[in-house]
Simulated assay, not measured.
Amino acid sequence: MTTKTALHPRNKHRHGYDFTRLIKSYPALSVLIKKNEFNQKETIDFSNSEAVKALNSALLKSYYGISHWDFPQSYLCPPIPGRVDYIHYLADLLKHSATNLAAINMPSKVKVLDIGTGATCIYPILGATEYGWHFVASDIDPVSVKTASVNVSANSHITKKVQCRLQENAKHIFQGIIKAGEFYQLTLCNPPFHKSIDDATAGTTRKWHNLNKSAKNFNKNTLNFGGQSAELWCQGGELAFIRQMIKESIGFHKQVLWFTCLVSNKDHLSKIKLSLKKAKVSQFKVIKMAQGQKISRFIAWSFFDTNL
């Protein structure tokens, strides 16, 4: 198997998919394996919703001990290797701040807030299993919160490490979720990217055609490109969402060490940085990640000076 050196060094999936191991832990995957027409290696049809969900279920069971993981068909199905990369880079961010945490009087238990956790609750599951972190997982969608809670409670080794909370006001991000007296070392977020449902549908269509699928077979609710409206789009898109996040973070500047958020469009970075400067943060960083040929990144900002 070819080494994917672009993935984080601690990422368990940087060497590709070990289908022998995955099928052993999740036999249902076996009937969904196919040969890549170019190199004849084992793979799955990534446009097949059943295959994508089975692959993720196998990865979670084999590598993270997650025996139950389910969600409604119309909700987003996240790629595990990319999601866990974000977790590993966050761990590095914390490690690099550790030498000065004593001066800031940080709690020893790492607590993380996941904004928009989704029905799969994927980031808390990965962070709790990989690093033993404790999470608050928030979402504006009641079905997502209920399903995420079921996924957590069904896996005893993470049950006490993840708490799911409903954000009752869709206009707020941190308000109503971060409670008085709470402190978080990290917040993380995969924000809604698109500006409208039409924009989101167009993006899904492009992905479908990139897999060389016939337009007549296109289904906008295909699982691996699916998602509820709150998962895919918001007024103003990704940039507006992150700007609101920065604005709200000011009010919680003493309760969070590092605020972070994925940024899909690199052209948004200059405007995001300007908003951070206006918010008078003590520091911010852009941390790049890569999965194969795709480059992704997240922005991190803090009102604490951990560089002293």
Rank of each mutant, 00 (worst) to 15 (best):
V281S: 09
K34E: 15
K161H: 09
H15P: 00
G203D: 05
Q291I: 13
L188R: 00
Q167E: 05
N151D: 09
T205V: 15
F241M: 07
N212Q: 11
A98N: 04
A102T: 08
S196Q: 03
S249D: 07
D85M: 02
K160N: 15
H8S: 00
V256H: 05
A230Q: 04
E238R: 01
H253E: 14
L186P: 03
P124E: 03
K247L: 14
H88P: 02
Q175A: 11
F259A: 06
R14S: 14
L32E: 08
W133Q: 00
V152R: 00
T204F: 13
C261Y: 07
V112A: 02
N212I: 08
I87A: 01
K254M: 05
R10C: 13
T187L: 05
K171Q: 13
L94D: 01
V162H: 01
N36T: 11
T120Q: 02
T204L: 14
I140Q: 03
H157A: 08
T159E: 14
Y75G: 01
D141Y: 09
V256M: 03
V162T: 06
V110K: 00
K266R: 04
G236C: 13
L22T: 05
I295E: 13
A202K: 08
L166P: 06
N48P: 02
T20E: 14
L239M: 12
V281Q: 13
Q293D: 11
I23D: 09
H253N: 12
L223N: 03
V152H: 00
I44R: 03
T5K: 08
S296D: 13
I80S: 03
K35A: 15
N265C: 09
P107C: 11
N105G: 12
V31R: 03
N210E: 15
I140R: 01
N11S: 11
A154C: 12
R83E: 12
D18W: 07
K266I: 15
W208R: 01
Q255C: 02
I33H: 04
F298Q: 12
N217M: 10
L276K: 01
K41E: 15
H172Y: 12
L94G: 00
S144M: 11
V136P: 00
A300I: 11
K273L: 06
A103N: 06
K34N: 10
I140V: 14
D18E: 10
A170W: 07
K61E: 10
F252N: 02
G237Q: 03
G132K: 01
A51W: 07
I178S: 02
K288P: 04
L211Y: 14
R206N: 13
S264M: 09
K285E: 15
Q283C: 12
Q293N: 09
P192V: 13
A102S: 08
D70Y: 06
A103M: 09
F183S: 09
F174L: 15
I104Y: 05
T201K: 06
G227L: 08
